[in-house]
């Protein structure tokens, strides 16, 4: 999994590429934690190029969402693939995250 982060408008955009599973989720969690610790609490997670996600990836996302919500921030999701959407739905998390069809809309929502 590759992670790239940049600032877009009022948000930090983290773009993931590849597979988010038990082997790679710790890298995601630590990258998200680094953002939050740097007071970047308006985060867009661009999932367009995530081919696969397991519960380990969801765990990293939920723990970050809880952390940023505590300081009035948010973690919003952009363009999840059908398979990632299926995993979010299986977990019952589609109502917990704000999900946008593309990165631009997610950034513009802040």
């Amino acid at each position: 999994m590759d992670i790239s982060t940049n600032e877009e408008g009022r948000a930090s955009v983290m773009k993931l590429n590849g597979r988010v599973d038990s082997a790679t989720a710790p890298d995601l969690e630590s990258a998200l934690k680094k953002l939050v610790e740097g007071d970047k609490t308006r985060i867009v997670l661009d999932l367009a190029d995530v081919e696969y996600m397991s519960s380990a990836g969801l765990r990293a996302m939920v723990s970050t969402l809880k952390a940023v919500k505590r300081v009035n921030g948010d973690l919003r999701l952009a363009s999840p693939s059908p398979r990632v959407e299926e995993v979010l739905r299986l977990a019952g998390l589609t109502s917990i995250f704000s999900i946008y069809p593309n990165q631009k809309d997610a950034v513009g929502s802040f």
């Binding site: 397991s54 519960s55 969801l58 765990r59 939920v62 995993v87 299986l90 977990a91 019952g92 917990i96």
Partner: peptide, 16 residues
């Protein structure tokens, strides 16, 4: 899961 507060990810893999 009805709210973020009760979002618990432990045990989710088994539920899947």
């Amino acid at each position: 899961i009805t709210s973020l507060d009760d979002a618990r990810i432990g045990g989710l893999g088994l539920a899947f």
